[in-house]
Amino acid sequence: MSTPAQSGPEPAGKKKGLLSRMKTVLKRSDGSKRLSFSSKPSAAGPSTKPAEPTPAPAPVIEPTIDIPVGATKVMRSQIDADRARKLGERFAVTIEPLSAGPDKETYRIEKPIRMRIHRSCHRCNATFGNNKICAQCQHTRCKNCPRYPPKKVEKKDKEAVVPKVMDIEPDTYYGLREQIILTKPNPKPNAQPLVRKKPMQRVRRTCHECSALFQPGTKICAGCEHVRCADCPRDPAKKKKYPDGYPGDAFSSNIDRPVKYNCHKCNKTFPPVPHPDSAEGIAAKEKEPLECVRCKHPMCKDCPRAPPQRVEPAPDPEVLKSVREKLAALSVQSTGVEA
């Protein structure tokens, strides 16, 4: 009896439950049940679809740096220290370099310093632009138009260029008491600076007996032991200022030259007279002696011989006449009217 009941059709209650379940799943808006319904077969057995392989991470490519020709590796801290040092030397202050982050290497190329050249028109003094025509007077740039900075002189291999010496005058305004030493850099490397000194003429004296040069600072000839006198020539010569000889010289042994004497009372110099050992000097002893212009003292045996010294030239009479005429023209003449 149980066998036919098992082989018969399924009861209607099971079919009704399956259909109602599918209707409720289709009516819902979200697919949560649908997904869970469709995923039931996958849970029953393994899936036949192969798993997709995971992609490998891409290798990191570092950017390549093109090192220029002539570049050297330096540290960033060294560059900052050089900048601080140059600024400190320029403004005479002490600057500490600031650290901006971690120190790293960088590349540096040493290049020559370039200067911008300016050209100006020699007609209207206007500055030229990028073209060669003046914007004001339409003048084409020529060789007469000045350039700043001026063009350097090309150095030749054989001829050495002599540095230009500038005439610098010290400032004595307000009567400065301290001595100002003016210096300029030496063109030779690692040499002491050049000190400005007053230009002086080197004087050479020659012995008139043996034609030997006197040593600097001596008055006795090294060859013939002759004492330097007024006859010894001087180079350069100054006969107009020192006709009787130069200061420090001995008296001349030439009796043909006239001599001078000083008044022993007022030290005034008498006019030149013939040498006492010459024929004219012996004949002049019988005449009346010269009289001093200042103290009216006649020249005597006590009046010493005047040493060689500078002689002031006599004033030109024409110059004195013109000066007197100008002073007379400036003088105020009385009109004869009294207040």
Rank of each mutant, 00 (worst) to 15 (best):
Q201F: 02
S36T: 07
Q138H: 14
P163Q: 10
E286K: 11
E325P: 04
K156I: 10
T54P: 12
K158L: 12
Q78V: 08
V203W: 01
S2L: 09
V293H: 10
P9K: 10
Q6M: 14
L19R: 15
R257V: 09
S2I: 04
A92T: 02
Y173P: 09
S42F: 14
S42Q: 12
L182N: 09
K219P: 01
T218Y: 04
K326I: 01
E178P: 10
Q333A: 06
K285H: 02
P233V: 05
P313I: 02
F214H: 06
Q6E: 12
P247D: 11
Q179E: 06
Q179N: 13
M299W: 01
C292V: 00
N130R: 10
S2T: 03
C300I: 00
P276K: 07
R123I: 14
H297P: 00
A279F: 02
T64L: 14
C210G: 03
S7T: 07
G45P: 00
R228K: 13
D277Q: 00
N186C: 10
R228L: 05
D316S: 09
R123D: 12
V153I: 11
K86R: 09
S7P: 05
P50H: 09
L330D: 12
K15W: 14
F251C: 03
A100L: 03
P187C: 04
K184Q: 05
T3R: 13
A222Q: 06
C232T: 03
S2F: 07
A92V: 11
S47P: 08
K73N: 12
R141L: 15
